[in-house]
Design a protein around this nucleic acid. Structure first.
Lengths: 182, 182
DNA sequence: CAAGATACGTCAATATGACTGACATAAATT
DNA sequence: AATTTATGTCAGTCATATTGACGTATCTTG
């Protein structure tokens, strides 16, 4: 797992006076969320890892095929914004997915320089398989939470995201308007 | 960023009948959480990246110094369980942190083979700085959420974590109720 | 139209953080 | 005394990321 820097809890918090973390006893109110995010995300992405191995892919492939499936017609430049990697890094992974038939490119109608990306049925099937594992985990996690609570979770996650430079995908997520769906 | 495989939304979900994701319009109820987790985590860990660069460290260093600060006296073996990496991978990073004075080792009292890890004031200061950025983000995110809602968020995150093989740190986190060392 | 900017692809070199496998040492356990 | 455990380390490899440079097709602009 990667990558992931994850978090950090502070040894000497000073922001709220009362917030400090005495070793393993007496849990605090905010740093525990840092840790929870680390472990939750670690296990969440771990779900897909085993499956990916069977296909000879890594997490980078998952991210690419996922967003292409989810946002058909995504341009290469859009993908770079979303993933925040360089085109050189994307290149290798994207080429593999193209060569192995998980993604196809179509020349843009308005701008023929663009290569619009689309998942093939093969690609969609892979994404569906991987997403199934993760939605299963999410469904289990929200099992004991009422609809209003689930909306609160969504609100929290949305509020954790930077909105300074919303790329195309983030705009879709945030509905362009207010935070909640619309 | 690594690292991080992240998520995936499915193109053809079939688990709940109603859960499917039509491109970028008509957002669904579960797959959006997959994406939200990806972006939230991406930005969350991104907070620390710039700071780490200034110190010449990477995310791996952050994870190590963080947990050592948070759980003083952690054994090397405990750290391997938490981070889920091999000792070879940990070795290089840990050695750097030791050499540069962010961490010190002490021989275990009961078992003299053990190297118990402790953060130095220098190490704690770094962790505090990094954690501050992340708790700021969390505090901003929960600003519009009432205490009960925040507890719901915590409940959700806890439920996202695998409990099969709880390591020492996870026990502390979940012991919140009773096993926490206390 | 010519010049420049843009979207994309690619070659080359490098870094980080992970891996497997093997082996060494000290200290605890049997 | 033999074995197991906790840790460290050497050596090689892999996946994914980086920067920098360059090429080419295509769109935009003066």
């Amino acid at each position: 797992m990667t990558d992931i820097n994850f978090s950090g809890m502070a040894a000497k918090p000073d922001s709220e006076g009362d917030d400090h973390a005495p070793a393993a006893g007496g849990r605090d109110l905010r740093w525990d969320i840092i840790e929870l995010l680390f472990f939750a995300y670690r296990d969440f992405v771990g779900d897909a890892d085993q499956e990916l191995e069977a296909f000879g892919f890594g997490r980078a492939h998952h991210r690419v095929i996922h967003f292409v499936t989810r946002y058909p017609g995504l341009k290469v430049a859009d993908l770079l914004d979303v993933l925040r990697i360089t085109k050189q890094s994307l290149g290798r992974v994207l080429k593999q997915l193209l060569d192995e038939g998980y993604i196809v490119q179509k020349t843009g109608n308005n701008d023929r320089r663009q290569r619009l990306l689309y998942a093939t049925p093969k690609g969609e099937a892979l994404v569906a398989k991987l997403a199934g594992l993760q939605t299963d985990r999410i469904n289990r996690a929200v099992a004991g939470i009422d609809p209003a609570g689930v909306e609160t979770v969504r609100q929290f996650l949305r509020a954790m995201i930077d909105r300074d430079d919303p790329d195309k995908v983030l705009e879709a997520i945030f509905g362009g308007g207010r935070k909640t769906r619309e």
